[in-house]
Nucleic acid binder design. Structure first.
Lengths: 241, 241
DNA sequence: GAGTGGTCTAGACCACAAT
DNA sequence: TTGTGGTCTAGACCACTCC
């Protein structure tokens, strides 16, 4: 008959959303064990099978990691396979360009109109801009321009300067409890410009890959934007079913 | 019941593999209903929950499609979302380049060493080569070079010439019962050559996207290789979690 | 040995499609 | 009305981790 209100959604979905909320809220942090199936089933007043279904869906989405005998933890972005899944630029030999990072500069700035549009904020909002190089076999291969929202990540510039992280998203998790849940990349072919010549040693006018990435947190909020310009002896690998 | 030996794998996995085999064998064809959960559970001598788990995994992998009240069917590649999932080239406006196809030529040839390597066959094995254009707003945007194994797809050249299909993988399903299960793409930046100038009207030397795709069937066998050269007012879209 | 997740069973009721 | 898949329950036993 008529439902008062609540959600007419299945129990396991409502439970899943609440578990997600608890991860978002920082109640359970990446790497930490969450309560067992039995404990959660009791807490939510559902059967173990239902609790399991909620947990399993989050595990399928790689937000949780289940280990028999040990328990269920919140996934960490530092886990090797996570890093690899996000970094899809390969050298001609089929190796991931993921070896070494060299920071060029970190600066505060006001959001350009593009940045404002991507982040959904007003033009002029504070952002942190970072330039860095990815190296492979000691050679610079990718020139990266990062742009981070300071309203969401206050003081991130200083942190980056101080720690020069290899894996930025691990820093966001550790310091801001922000988990990158989705990434969108546009890959284009462009001509090398003076800056590329300087940083990567490519000839001006040569074709290069340009990748524009936007990274979203669990709430679907755009947190970081990144332009990557790669030497054309690399390729971008995309595999899907 | 006690299994004599067989695999020590869980029941639902063995059942899943057998269901997969039955799809591969052509016993159930794309678009057809397969037996219900209850029928399959009875047939395999397992509980409904176990049968459900086997079926659900195949549905998660998009090989099966479940519809409440109706039944479970083998997925068809012609389903709109399937086509879109495979075609990731977008115009600057964010529209998929997927509107119209114009075939230039279809010919038989002997596998080059690259083709032989990709397909895992001897050099000189028969292949069918196809050149075609993808149009958007009546303008040619992508020049494609397809190469198909004739040992796996006998007579495919004549079929393509006769039907000029918009969706090649739907033709492979219909005529050869071959389901494309995995696709791997390498995206590179290259210079436009004479052939691109002719077909797409781009200036020689301009940067273009070149995409090399290999398509695999359910057995993991490489069936098709494709080079796509796209005008640089397009981009390749990649989204992942 | 205690506790975890992984597999498996055998039911129940429901929402939905087809007829 | 019949049969389908979707949700949910309440158990059982097992493989594994940790102490």
């Amino acid at each position: 008959m008529e439902q008062p209100a609540a959600a007419n959604k299945p129990l396991y979905l409502r439970m899943k959303e609440d578990l997600l909320r608890r991860v978002q809220s920082g109640e359970w942090r990446p790497g930490e064990l969450i309560p067992s199936e039995n404990a959660l089933a009791a807490e939510y007043g559902v059967s173990v099978g239902t609790a399991r279904k909620a947990i399993e869906e989050l595990a399928d989405e790689r937000l949780l990691v289940r280990q028999r005998g040990r328990g269920t933890t919140v996934a960490m972005h530092t886990h090797r396979q996570e890093v690899l899944r996000h970094y899809r630029l390969m050298t001609k030999d089929g190796e991931r360009v993921n070896e070494e990072t060299s920071y060029l500069d970190v600066a505060s700035a006001r959001a350009s109109s593009t940045e404002a549009k991507v982040f959904g904020v007003n033009r002029g909002t504070a952002v942190t801009r970072v330039r860095r190089l990815r190296l492979y076999a000691k050679q610079p291969v990718v020139l990266e321009f990062l742009s981070l929202r300071e309203d969401v990540l206050p003081g991130v510039g200083a942190l980056i300067r101080a720690t020069q992280p290899e894996v930025l998203y691990a820093l966001l998790e550790r310091e801001y409890h922000i988990i990158i849940a989705k990434v969108s990349e546009k890959i284009m072919a462009v001509k090398a410009e003076a800056e590329d010549t300087e940083a990567l040693g490519v000839r001006a006018g040569e074709p290069m890959l340009e990748i524009e990435r936007v990274a979203y947190d669990l709430n679907g909020r755009a947190v970081e934007r990144r332009i990557m310009r790669a030497r054309n002896d690399t390729y971008y690998l995309s595999e899907f079913a």
